[in-house]
């Protein structure tokens, strides 16, 4: 009886989704247990490795003081604005390079060279030029988000099945109509995976920006907790970055899934 029910659960779509989610939680649970064991084993001091509940306590007290919400909000805001700017530019420039051979010849080498610059190398220059307000941080996130979007969009458009291009032209589509009705839809799956990569890289660059010159945000929380010896807050910031990154990626992942389903 119970065997039949379990089999039915496995077979049903919701059952499979739930099982997969449960499987994905196994490793974090194991890590949590290992963390707890390591923290209480006496090998590490409490300032080296505080137990999970100390991190929870830190979160609670920061929440009570209204600081944690503030750090999270400012970081999320920077990522969203920076991602919007960087991804838009990536779509634009990637589209240009993917569609026009002349634009590719003129722009692609330079863009590839700029891409090779490590994120941290930009920080001093951005501070020098843009001061220490929000602009340099958002700019750095935008730089981070730009490149994956640019690369996947230009490659995606470049690799659109030439037979579909021929079809579009045979049916009178050229220029913007060909782009909107054939090329962009055909490249949509690639574009969406590019947006996902761009968002992930936006978070990476955010921390780079906040580590160095800021008084707010999760990156600041990291560097500040290190300076004040608050390993519990440091771990909290790391966990939060992981959760936020995963959550924002999952949102885009849902959109990507819809597209891939419709496109295949």
């Amino acid at each position: 009886m119970s065997g039949i029910t379990a089999a039915a659960v496995v077979r049903s779509r919701w059952g499979r989704t739930a099982l997969r989610a449960a499987a994905g939680l196994l490793l974090p649970a194991a890590l949590l247990i290992a963390w707890q064991l390591a923290a209480t084993s006496g090998t590490y001091t409490r300032s080296q490795l505080p137990p999970p509940e100390a991190v929870l306590d830190a979160a609670r007290s920061l929440l009570d003081r209204g600081e944690l919400q503030h750090h999270i909000a400012i970081s999320v805001q920077r990522v969203l604005i920076g991602f919007a700017v960087g991804a838009s530019l990536g779509l634009l420039l990637g589209g240009l390079v993917g569609l026009s051979g002349a634009a590719r010849a003129a722009l692609a080498p330079t863009v590839q060279a700029i891409r090779a610059v490590p994120s941290l190398a930009w920080v001093p220059l951005l501070l020098l030029w843009l001061g220490i307000g929000e602009t340099p941080k958002i700019t750095l996130v935008a730089i981070g988000a730009f490149f994956p979007v640019y690369t996947t969009v230009s490659a995606g458009l470049d690799h659109v099945d030439p037979r579909l291009r021929e079809l579009g032209r045979a049916y009178g589509r050229r220029g913007p109509a060909l782009l909107a009705q054939v090329l962009i839809p055909a490249a949509a799956p690639a574009v969406l995976s590019g947006l996902r990569l761009g968002l992930a890289q936006g978070w990476l660059f955010l921390v780079a920006a906040e580590l160095i010159a800021s008084s707010m945000g999760l990156g600041f929380l990291l560097i500040d907790s290190e300076n004040t010896g608050r390993t519990d807050i440091l771990l909290l910031a790391i966990v939060l970055l992981a959760l936020l990154g995963k959550a924002s990626d999952a949102l885009l992942g849902v959109a990507e899934l819809q597209v891939v389903r419709r496109w295949s």
């Binding site: 037979r163 079809l167 839809p185 295949s264």
Partner: peptide, 8 residues
């Protein structure tokens, strides 16, 4: 080949 657009 039919060349239908998969997303339509």
């Amino acid at each position: 080949d039919a060349r239908l657009m998969a997303w339509r």
